[in-house]
């Protein structure tokens, strides 16, 4: 407790990042420490799970220590512990869970498992104190692409999701074949700024009429086929143009479906969250569309778009206040549905 306010320690280790954060009540961030393994994974062009868990193990204690120090509190001040329990890489999740469980046991404090996507959505609350459900959320990252109707702090209905690759995964794979490196999102975003987005017309996949699902495997194949055709022709490949055209095709689909979903659910607020929500084109397109169609748009600053523990702490506090507390049997659910 601090000034009679609840203190939550949040822990997130589902993928690349080892993160710990201290949250005051639901929305005030006292600290949010993130140790990224991106440099390690760059060598492999993707997340390497074994490396991920080993580094989480090395990072977790120092990261928690710095989070407490930065927040100027001690472990004794912590009232509850929130941790990502899924989805993610099983070995990586287990490090965070084992840590959170031991702390909850030793400190005799409540333990709250948080769904990673609920975390991403909660990230938006932190910087937009006025935002309250209901609203429509698009959660896009390397592992997820979902349209979610958020009816209350702990009530979610998934209206659509990807049927194959996540949007961020498509960015990683296309960046790889374009020779741009990892992580694909920011690299394609950068390259696209120097390219012509109308140079190549990649097919936009909208699936069946009325469907809010996504498919990004086809556009990845579309880019590969285009590269092969160019190679056979002996034509010079313009990486920036290809990146820009690919990015526009993906963002058009994401934007269009989100707007349709908001209209269908009669929501007047739209939230975009997750790593891909940091993409400059997606932000611009969503802004323009929301202005034109009369929706209020909310998105987190880039640091809260990536995986971080502040969002997990925020979500955990909301769950705790609704009485949604877990016990020490809490397990990792690599394929957990929201």
């Amino acid at each position: 407790m601090k000034d009679n306010k609840l203190i939550t320690l949040g822990i997130e280790t589902s993928c690349d990042e080892t993160s710990a954060a201290v949250i005051l009540e639901e929305r005030e961030v006292l600290s949010n420490v993130i140790a990224s393994q991106i440099k390690v994974h760059q060598a492999f062009g993707g997340v390497v799970p074994e490396i991920a868990s080993r580094h989480h193990l090395n990072n977790i204690n120092p990261v928690i220590d710095s989070a407490l120090k930065e927040a100027d509190i001690t472990l004794r001040d912590v009232d509850l512990i929130g941790v990502t329990s899924g989805p993610g890489l099983v070995g990586a999740l287990l490090i965070g869970l084992a840590t959170a469980k031991s702390m909850a046991y030793v400190l005799k404090k409540p333990l709250i498992g948080v769904h990673h996507i609920q975390g991403h959505i909660s990230a938006v609350y932190i910087e937009h104190k006025e935002l309250e459900p209901p609203f429509l959320a698009l959660v896009v990252s390397g592992g997820h692409t979902s349209i979610v109707d958020v009816t209350d702090y702990n009530k979610y209905e998934v209206l659509g999701h990807t049927r194959d690759d996540a949007a961020g995964e498509a960015f990683d794979k296309v960046a790889r074949v374009l020779g741009l490196g990892y992580p694909g999102g920011p690299l394609i975003d950068e390259a696209a700024k120097k390219g012509n987005p109308h140079a190549v017309e990649f097919k936009r996949v909208f699936l069946e009429k009325d469907s809010l699902d996504f498919s990004f495997s086809g556009i990845k194949t579309g880019v590969l086929n285009y590269l092969n055709t160019q190679k056979l022709k002996g034509a010079q490949l313009n990486v920036n143009d290809t990146a820009a055209s690919f990015q526009l095709a993906v963002m058009e689909v994401l934007t269009a479906k989100t707007i349709v979903a908001a209209k269908r659910t009669k929501r007047d607020k739209i939230v975009i969250a997750g790593g891909v929500a940091a993409n400059s084109l997606l932000r611009q397109m969503m802004k323009d569309e929301c202005e034109r169609k009369g929706f209020d748009l909310y998105f987190p600053s880039p640091i809260l778009c990536t995986d971080n523990a502040a969002m997990i702490g925020c979500a955990a506090c909301y769950k705790y206040k609704s009485g949604l507390v877990d016990n020490l049997f809490l397990d990792a659910y690599p394929n957990k549905a929201l």
Binding site: G142, G143, R163, A166, E169
Partner: peptide, 13 residues
């Protein structure tokens, strides 16, 4: 069930 890419989690059941 819908079969989605297991790239992120390595295996799906």
């Amino acid at each position: 069930e819908m079969i989605t890419s297991p790239t992120f989690t390595i295996v799906r059941e």
